[in-house]
Amino acid sequence: MSTSWPLWEVFVRGKRGLNHVHVGSLHAPDAEMALRNARDVYTRRNEGVSIWVVPAAAITASSPDEKDPFFAPAGDKVYRHPTFYSIPEDVPHL
C-alpha cells in the first residue's frame, strides 16, 4: 500500500491588507495537518498572519504553451489603459 500523502499548495498572507501569496508546497494526510505543517515549514519567523492550503490536484492552470493566444484578447486593447487618452496638461486632477 502506498502511504504517500497528497500534495498541498501553501499560500500565506504576510500581514493584514495584503493578498495571500503562494510560497511552496508540502505533503500532509489531510487539510488540518497541512495547515499545521505549513505553519512550521513556512512561517517560523512571523512571515504570516493567515495560511491557505489547497490540494495541488484541485488547481486548474492555464497552459504556458498557449500563453500568447490565451492572453491575446488583452493584447490589442490599449484603450483600457489611462495613458491611451491625451488630456491637456493644464486640466487638473485627471
Binding site: 502506498s2 504517500s4 500534495l7 511552496g24 508546497s25 508540502l26 505533503h27 512550521d40 515549514v41 517560523r44
Partner: peptide, 26 residues
C-alpha cells in the same frame, strides 16, 4: 534546536521545488 529545525525546513523547500519538475518525494 531552531537552527536544526531550519535545516529541516530548507530540505522541505527544496524537495518542494523538485516536485514542480515531476520528481516524486518518496
Amino acid at each position: 534546536l531552531a537552527k536544526v529545525q531550519d535545516e529541516a525546513g530548507h530540505g522541505l523547500y527544496l524537495y518542494s521545488a523538485t516536485e514542480t519538475l515531476g520528481a516524486d518525494r518518496e
